[in-house]
Nucleic acid binder design. Structure first.
Lengths: 149, 149
DNA sequence: AGCATCTATTTGCATATACAATTAAATGCA
DNA sequence: TGCATTTAATTGTATATGCAAATAGATGCT
């Protein structure tokens, strides 16, 4: 029998899909930050983790994941790389299951050094998205539960 | 000497970084679609490519990448997987460098079958983000140049 | 024709991400 | 004490992503 008409469906999804748009924006905006941070050999994904860890001071993986809406297994691999670079360290606890981490001095220095690059990327992203979209982005992120971080 | 004060910097980035928010939203929203599409063994990243290919009818990798703001190397690998699943096929050209692709019948049928799952995820994403943010998302994506797709 | 150059795509390598399964440690209860 | 259960994190496996380098084919110039 004749193949089903695919065109209307394709047009609908192409014009309306929120995921395709969000994923595109994510790629473009992440690249702005990655480009700015490249001289520091730091990626925006890693900077996010450094910041969230600094915010919590002593950060349990599961807590970080709740704040960042990241899978624990994803975080585990990222932290592994960042420990080996000397930016994070584990702080042993009474409960041997816990492996909470904190910033090392080196990690803190890296964040300080990254600040100007972050500011540049942030302002590029701001101009690209426009103020309204940028504000809405904050609102939307707030709706994800587990406070903004 | 004393370590630099890291707290104010961490607070600023945590509260204002657009990338961290966009990346979080991307993870959460992509998961809505991936969950809905899982029974079809289809990921939202792949659905995006199927749709963009369907839209162009005969799609050159470089064109797809421009529309989707994707690296050609990324697309190359994704297309490889999708060819091996029988959803896409290469259409040889006079210019031997060109490797334009199109949907196979199987790829079209898959899209048809995926439509209800897409609709469910789309409406979940809509509720999560709210109408205003969803609309802004379209505007913002429009700012990326190379028309909406 | 022959060669440098340009263009389209793929390949090598590394990180990011998620799901499922596993390990390790604490806890509760018989 | 001993064992099932629960909790915290890691490990196995696969896809997604991007940068840099390599390949392959077309094109233009001499």
């Amino acid at each position: 029998m004749a193949p089903p008409k695919i065109k209307p469906l394709v047009d609908t999804i192409a014009e309306e899909c929120l995921a395709v748009r969000l994923r595109m924006l994510n790629r473009v905006v992440s690249k702005l930050y990655d480009d700015a941070l490249r001289p520091l050999e730091l990626k925006v994904s890693q900077m996010n983790i450094l910041v969230a860890t600094g915010k919590l001071e002593l950060a349990h993986p599961a807590d970080l994941c709740q704040h960042l809406h990241l899978e624990v297994s994803t975080l585990s691999r990222n932290v592994e790389r960042m420990k080996s670079r000397g930016w994070l360290e584990v702080v042993p606890q009474d409960d041997g299951r816990s492996q909470p981490i904190r910033l090392t001095s080196s990690g803190k220095r890296l964040l300080q050094k990254a600040a100007p690059a972050w500011k540049r990327a942030q302002s590029q992203a701001q101009s690209l998205l426009g103020k309204k979209a940028a504000d809405l982005l904050k609102d939307a992120a707030g709706k994800l539960g587990s406070r903004t971080l």
